[in-house]
Amino acid sequence: MRYPQGGGLTAERRAFRERIRMEAAGMFAAGQVNTVMAKQLRVSLRSVQRWRADWQDGGRQALQSKGSAARPKLSEALFTVLEQELARGPVAHGWPDQTWTLARIKTLIGRRFHKTLTLSAIAQMLHRHGFSHQVPARRALERNDDAVTGWVKDTWPPGGSAAAALDGWIVFEDEAGFSMTPPTSRTWSRRGHTPVIRVRGRSRGRVSVAALCCYRPGERSRLIYRYILHDPHGGHTKAGRRSFSWTDYRDLLSAAHQQLGAPLVLVWDNLNTHRAVSLRNWVAEHDGVTVVQLPV
């Protein structure tokens, strides 16, 4: 591979090639012919011819590695600064969305370091430093990480104890909407670290799915779900909704309770429908369902 990661030879690869050339120098001194050398060294005949011309002009020293072909325009120290700026996100630098493109990175380099690089040079530099072009993950703007930490510490332990006391199932519920159009935008980030962009925690998908992930010690896990298919021309369900109503959740929980045959400790978020008065009254009237609400 001549240009690993699109960014020139590594030090190890340069050293390997130099060993091949030094071996060729010994074969030149021994009087071997080019065609035999090319076969033994597993290189092209043209390479052997070029090495022989250099060897005749300057000896073994002419075949030694001269190091990297060119020094990078951004030093390691400057790239560290660039990585910090990239981590701040495009919005912090005045762009309207949260994806990095080569053109934006080029502009950022010009603003921050007063240097000009071509788009291909920027791509090679990013690849050399372990970056790749990725589809980012999505995280809701409404998420409050401090509230989540407090919930895990204070609220959830009683919920887990309730499931054990009732000999019931711990049930995690969530819903999602899906469209038939896959995401197309990508952004640059270090390989192995999927970038995350902040988006509205709502969906206008053509298919809505609500699912229960059910767990109890000594039992295999269960997945119980319901889905709604929306009109392909942008219409709604028969009830005039694009999402589940409180009666849909009621029916899903009733079916799960009947199928599992044991009390449910339900963990779900603060979706408006989850907090509907009718649904809360129904839960209060049924001893088989205990609700643990996730943090707002």
Rank of each mutant, 00 (worst) to 15 (best):
Q61E: 15
R200A: 14
T290H: 14
R112F: 06
R200P: 06
R42K: 15
H230M: 11
D57K: 04
M22Q: 14
A147F: 10
A165L: 15
S65R: 04
G192M: 11
D54L: 09
C214L: 02
R280N: 07
T116V: 14
V43D: 02
H93S: 02
T155F: 00
T181S: 09
R191F: 12
F79E: 08
R14I: 02
R52H: 10
F178K: 05
K153Q: 14
A276C: 10
F244A: 04
E85M: 02
L294R: 04
R88Q: 11
M125V: 10
Q134S: 08
A140Y: 05
S185A: 13
L119I: 13
W188D: 00
A163M: 13
A92N: 03
D146V: 15
G150S: 09
E12C: 05
S278Y: 01
L117E: 09
V209I: 13
R104P: 04
G201A: 11
P72K: 00
M37D: 03
H114P: 00
S120Q: 14
A15N: 04
N272F: 00
S68I: 04
A276T: 12
A211D: 02
Q98D: 14
G31C: 10
H286C: 05
A163R: 12
V265M: 01
D269K: 12
L63D: 05
W100S: 07
R198I: 14
G261Q: 02
V135F: 12
F28G: 11
W51F: 02
W268A: 14
R46N: 07
I109W: 03
R242L: 08
G31F: 00
N144S: 11
E85Y: 05
G6E: 00
H129V: 01
P96G: 08
H230R: 15
K73Y: 04
R88L: 12
Q40E: 08
V135N: 10
G26Q: 07
V135T: 13
R17Q: 09
A140T: 15
N270Y: 00
R111W: 14
L126P: 03
Q98L: 10
A256I: 04
H127A: 15
